[in-house]
Amino acid sequence: MSDSIDRETVEQVARLACIDLPASRVDETAKQLAEILEYVGQLEQVSLPDDVEPFFGATESVNAIRKDELSPSVARPDILSNAPDSDGEFYQVPPVF
């Protein structure tokens, strides 16, 4: 389980994650990702009975559910203060189109 990761995959993943990855670091990143996958891949060596259900989270607890009730929102000036740019009403972002 030492599948290598090609440059194309690294570039694709970087694009999807909106990470600006310089071309000079692609090979290095590919090697690191492959090592991580190999490390995690060791888990596949554990043999499991067939009837074990896949596990989707870090806890076995279920059903943390809240009633449909209102709670106060955060005041607009406070929530907008986290934004790089706003006009006091809206978030301002660079033009999308």
Partner: peptide
């Protein structure tokens, strides 16, 4: 996933939280 109101037509960004 939170207690903010879903009411339509409120002033912008007055029904949000963390």
């Amino acid at each position: 996933f939170c207690g903010c109101s879903t009411e339509f037509g409120a002033p912008p960004n007055t029904q949000t939280c963390v």
